[in-house]
């Protein structure tokens, strides 16, 4: 995982859903769960990017903690007792997904990413077949000023994958987030049209990691935007050179 961790790491033992598992001390609950074949739903998390705990979909219960903890940014501790599939969690996960749908204008049928969208797939997987909360129907812009790419804010779930990949992998830090709460927006440079950004290298990494149809290649019609998985390869190559 973490290439700088050459020093010896101690081993922690803990329980996930009643089963004993062991982990390196620098691992998160999500890492360990995945290693042991335990499913925890995630949206903002992406292997190869620093986890930020933005979407809260990965919440788990830890005995002794009154709060639910996001598995992607919670490090393991000795004797932790983690539950990943309680009634409360199932309920909250659905709520979180429904709120994401209610917050923006997600119209799957006409979206470039229809059939390849992580939000859409997660809704089906977790059995979200309708949204119980009132839709906000915000009036949001589409910025098509870039030569090759466009951003449709109606579909953004503010996972910040674009921000992180641009900063951590490409090194440009073109993307950022402005505003608070539901009024937050991803922006390029100093909140200017993407096409006028001086830092953007047009590498397209942000487009490839966006879980929804927010960032897409121009010229794609409904359902035509498929994404490539390039991060595992890039991170592997970089680790080998350390």
């Amino acid at each position: 995982m973490n290439p700088s961790a050459q020093k010896t790491l101690s081993v922690k033992t803990l329980q996930i859903n009643g089963k004993d598992v062991s982990a390196r001390e620098d691992q998160t609950i999500l890492d360990v769960a995945r290693e042991n074949g335990v499913f925890i739903p995630t949206l903002c998390n992406l292997d190869g990017l620093t986890p930020v705990g933005a979407c809260r979909l990965c919440l788990v219960e830890v005995k002794g903690s009154r709060r639910l903890l996001p598995a992607c940014i919670t490090q393991v501790q000795d004797n932790m007792e983690v539950s990943t599939n309680t009634e409360t969690l199932v309920k909250y996960r659905k709520m979180i997904l429904e709120l994401l749908f209610a917050e923006r204008n997600h119209v799957c049928s006409v979206c470039v990413s229809n059939g390849h969208c992580e939000l859409q797939a997660m809704a089906q997987k977790l059995g979200v077949d309708h949204i119980r909360y009132p839709y906000l129907y915000p009036k949001l812009a589409v910025d098509a000023s870039h030569d090759r790419f466009a951003v449709d804010h109606n579909r953004c779930i503010l996972c910040q994958r674009c921000v992180r990949v641009c900063d951590e992998i490409e090194g440009a830090h073109t993307w950022d987030v402005q505003g608070r709460g539901t009024a937050s927006l991803v922006i390029t440079d100093l909140n200017q049209p993407w096409g006028t950004s001086e830092s953007c290298t047009s590498c397209g990494k942000c487009v490839q990691v966006c879980p929804t149809g927010t960032l897409f290649e121009k010229g794609r019609a409904s359902g035509e935007m498929t994404k490539r998985e390039f991060l595992p390869y890039l991170t592997l190559m970089r680790e080998e050179r350390v």
């Binding site: 204008n105 839709y135 129907y137």
Partner: peptide
């Protein structure tokens, strides 16, 4: 979808 989440007809709502 139109019945379930108002889909394409809802695209007028923000305006």
């Amino acid at each position: 979808d139109c019945a379930v989440n108002s889909n394409v007809p809802s695209m007028r709502n923000p305006f």
